[in-house]
């Protein structure tokens, strides 16, 4: 099999990798790129554990071919903290215990960050609808929704 060479930007850094034409972006992230923060829950677009941004738009990396990254900008959970400084959402998820096993967490964080960039003052209903594509089998969602609402409030106050 001949691999394809892909040049892209990940979390602001130029990157190159090799992949099979049938590999998904999630395969590439977790494989050759070694960015294992994005998780694989279903590989069918249902769970959101693989959430990333493509040119700033929220998508499922399991529903994108890795070769499609050529010339585009990818954002993953690894780009969320700035060095040792957690993003306010990450900090709040810890404080509110908005995670248990953690499988859904990176997807929840990436999706929530995309929401707050678009809408800094979402209603609880808007948060719940926005996160409808992120499944969590542990928390019952309440703590996650609360963490997003409180972070939004904190960030607006700054």
């Amino acid at each position: 099999m001949s691999k394809v060479h892909v040049t892209t930007t990940i979390n602001g850094e130029p990157m190159e990798f090799l992949c099979e034409p049938s590999d998904t972006m999630l395969d590439a992230l977790r494989g050759p790129l070694g960015l294992t923060g994005s998780k694989e829950g279903c590989s069918s677009g249902d769970c959101g554990a693989c959430s990333i941004t493509l040119d700033d738009r929220l998508i499922c990396s399991c529903l994108m071919l890795a070769v499609e990254a050529e010339g585009h900008r990818i954002g993953t959970i690894e780009g969320m903290a700035k060095g040792e400084h957690l993003h306010p959402l990450q900090q709040k998820f810890l404080e509110e215990a908005a995670l248990q096993c953690g499988i859904c967490t990176s997807g929840m964080l990436v999706a929530s960050e995309a929401l707050l960039k678009k809408n800094p003052d979402p209603s609880e209903e808007e948060v719940r609808f926005w996160l409808a594509g992120n499944l969590c089998r542990c928390t019952g969602y309440d703590k996650i929704v609360r963490a997003v609402m409180e972070t939004a409030q904190d960030m607006r106050a700054q």
């Binding site: 677009g45 959101g48 959430s51 493509l54 738009r57 929220l58 998508i59 499922c60 529903l63 994108m64 999706a111 995309a114 929401l115 926005w130 409808a132 594509g133 992120n134």
Partner: peptide, 9 residues
């Protein structure tokens, strides 16, 4: 159609 993630595509 689908979630916000699915909507993105």
């Amino acid at each position: 159609i689908g979630s916000k993630q699915v909507q993105g595509r």
